[in-house]
Computed example of a mutant assay.
Amino acid sequence: PLVSHGRVVGVIDSEHPEIGAFDAADLEVLTTVAAMTSAKLELLAEVDRSHSQYLALKESHRQLSEEIQNRTALEAELFNVRKMEAVGQLTGGFAHDFNNLLTVISGNLEFVGLAENEAQRQEYLDEARTAAGRAAKLIQDLLAFSQRMHLRPVRTNLNTMITTICAQNRQRLPGDIQMDLVEDILPVQVDPTAAEIALVNLMINARDAMPHGGTLYIKTENIQHGVADNESLSKNIVPGSYVKLTVSDEGEGIPPEALDQIFDPFFTTKPVGAGTGLGLSMVLGFMQQSGGAVIAKPEVSQGATFELYFPTS
């Protein structure tokens, strides 16, 4: 070793003297090279770790993509199954009810030829006409449910329509009806015939829910539905001006397990032959087609409430 002023400044290889000695500058260069080499090795190691992580992420992405594809396929298959179930329920219920009505019509028409007198013949014809009318209403309800009924909306005063309906259908409705109709009601743009059918369906449902009597409540009011109300009221009701029609009864209410099905076609809690199960689905279809919405608020043992929101014209 070469020592200068008490420190080693280089070495001399006795076997290879031509190499010479290393001074302080040479040592600094060697140290720098060693540090750079070490940094390079660490960088290569980091690159290797990053590459391994990339490969792991790539594999995870492949597995996730495969899982998403499988789940999407299963969801599509489940959707098709449910769609076919809905179509089967719809067509099966419709075919059953319509076939019953055709049987009544054809049976009474056969009896017409066997009638012993004119009064009996007229009775059979009346029964056939009634069944034909119910068949026509069944078709109309089905069209309204599918939102393909051709509506003819006109400027309508719901208070006038409600008063007229209650007067014309007094025998079909509950004995006690209480109306709370706002005086300065805003006009709405709806098909009056379809609106009347929807309201009558709700009234008849209320009557059937109170076999031992009770009060039917009908209320109208003008409301301004804002963005802040949308979450609490219903996501199906866009902000705007509406006339809210509320129909409430004092019946047994709707069981919680049936709440998600009350608007399904041919779903009914009534006995066989007492209803087609298209009433509420027709109301839903009519309100959606009219740009409005319907909300059910059933309370078991406290009756049921239906709120219809008609956009003002």
Rank of each mutant, 00 (worst) to 15 (best):
V154H: 02
N108Q: 09
L142S: 14
I185L: 09
V182C: 09
R152G: 14
N99Q: 13
Q224V: 14
A194N: 08
M179W: 06
A167F: 01
A136I: 10
A115N: 12
G175H: 11
P187F: 05
V188Q: 03
R207G: 01
V154A: 11
Q189K: 07
L102Q: 13
G107F: 03
F98W: 11
P174Y: 03
E183V: 11
R170L: 06
L125M: 11
A167S: 10
I105S: 01
H225Q: 15
N108Y: 07
L151N: 06
L181A: 08
N201I: 01
P187E: 10
V190A: 07
N99M: 08
Q178V: 14
A144T: 13
T215C: 05
I218P: 00
L125W: 02
N201Q: 13
G213P: 07
L143W: 02
V188H: 04
L186E: 15
A131F: 03
L186V: 09
D180C: 05
P174E: 03
D184G: 05
R172F: 00
F111P: 04
F94Q: 12
Q171P: 01
R121D: 00
T160D: 13
L199E: 04
L143P: 07
D176Q: 14
F98N: 14
R155W: 01
T164W: 07
A167V: 04
D176G: 03
A195I: 09
I105F: 02
L138Y: 02
E183D: 15
F145G: 13
I162G: 08
P174A: 03
C166I: 13
H150A: 15
L101A: 06
E110A: 12
L181Y: 08
N222P: 01
L102K: 08
A194K: 04
A95I: 13
H212Y: 06
L202A: 01
A167N: 10
I162T: 09
N205E: 03
R207N: 04
V182Y: 06
R207Y: 01
Q147N: 10
D97H: 14
L101M: 10
L181E: 11
V190S: 07
H150V: 15
L114R: 15
